[in-house]
Design a protein around this nucleic acid. Structure first.
Lengths: 230, 230
DNA sequence: CCATTATTGTCACGTCAGCGACAATCCCCG
DNA sequence: CGGGGATTGTCGCTGACGTGACAATAATGG
């Protein structure tokens, strides 16, 4: 039942941006890319870096965040395979709008902007996927913005958990982040996040197992986050 | 000294997205577009609408916002000529991610997605501008997200004023929004925004003239907003 | 398997900012 | 030139949440 993104097919299996391409084109993509590994805690890039590449995750997890002058962090998203990050720099070749750090040991393919542009030139259909990916990104950012205005902290925590659970249909989803990371995502203090999670647990929406959280009632969390539940 | 975006040249003068196109191409753009007028208070589109067009502002001003179930608003940006809005729907043809309301009497050109795609097909260079525009949008959304986490309300008010002042180099900039609108942009209550503005006025950073605000020390506001001042 | 470090859980306290209420102004329109 | 609705300016009260501090528990590596 577990998803293992890269245990069959080529390195791009499941990567939406390169879905629907002919095998030989995919091979060219892979040939043009460079494999990179990062230890947990290592930075992939930091804000205002030149931003020269698209990164395709194959294994691990990466936190995308912005840093305040004080060192405080605001985590925008946690990205896992088979997703990509750094798409924004493909647009305009401008500098990174956020930093990225591996929160687990991570393996990724890096595709330089130049290689990507060449690829697009030969295969314009890739642009559709880029566009779709950017659309999703913009929608998410827009929504998160509103969330910071409309939702109280427990609401944002609930929403964060829902987002982390992804589109999983399973009745139980395990969240592999500690409370500090959760706090940086929800935009609150670690202590308050702890409170929120405690109250969710009391209501039976989730269970804490040591340092991990097992969500058992995603619908309830969705409602608490002000999302219309289907 | 005043900027009058559309009193010389054609309707696209100053519109970055169509800058650098040959006059005849610009004429075709204009021919493919439909002129629309909106009264103050009128909606251009609402969240989850099909999202069929790009809107090029020629006169007036439009607020882009999201609405909470309670009716509360979070204003993401105020757009004025010669800027455009609705670019996101061009990407993927998906529904609107926010609503838009004319906050002044407004005149705009609406370019259907179909017409736009055709135009891009004939003139791929337009894509660069779209990309750049999306890059700017994503950067702004990312930054605003962090702002809601890092800045207190006065800080967000200061930042809102700085953003509204735009890239104007003038020593004085007039802001034409009322405090309620400002509050919806900064993500705070009208009363608290009033307080913040009062304190800025005391410090000599701005002056209130009836219902408008005249910013006199943009640098100070920038610093208060945690922006590195040059 | 134990020692050490990371993480979680819970206080008490202070403060920021929302809310309701109201007076003082402003400004638009008849 | 008046109203009268809209907007601004100011209260006091209250609650949510950040902060620092600490104990309890869990994870990790020699």
């Amino acid at each position: 039942m577990e998803v293992r993104p890269s245990d069959s097919g080529d390195a791009l299996t499941g990567v939406e941006m390169f879905a629907g391409l002919e095998p030989e084109v995919r091979q060219r993509v892979i040939a043009a890319a460079v494999s990179r590994t990062y230890r947990k805690g290592q930075l992939l890039f930091v804000e205002n870096d030149p931003g020269e590449s698209l990164i395709v995750l194959r294994r691990g997890a990466v936190a995308v965040f912005r840093t305040a002058p004080t060192g405080e962090r605001a985590v925008l998203s946690v990205v896992r395979p088979p997703d990509v990050l750094g798409e924004v720099s493909l647009l305009d070749g401008a500098t990174r709008s956020a930093s990225a750090e591996a929160i687990e040991d991570t393996v990724a393919l890096a595709l330089s902007r130049a290689a990507f542009l060449e690829l697009v030139h030969a295969n314009p259909r890739i642009l559709d996927a880029v566009m779709r990916s950017l659309g999703v990104l913009i929608r998410r950012l827009t929504e998160q913005n509103a969330d910071h205005v409309f939702l109280d902290l427990p609401g944002r925590v609930a929403k964060t958990l829902v987002r982390l659970a992804g589109d999983s249909q399973a009745p139980m989803v395990t969240i592999e982040l500690n409370q500090s990371q959760l706090a940086e995502m929800a935009g609150g203090s670690r202590q308050s996040v702890n409170q929120a999670i405690g109250s969710f647990a009391n209501r039976g929406w989730l269970r804490t197992e040591g340092r991990r959280i097992v969500v058992t009632d995603l619908s309830a969390l969705r409602r608490r986050a002000g999302m219309v539940d289907r």
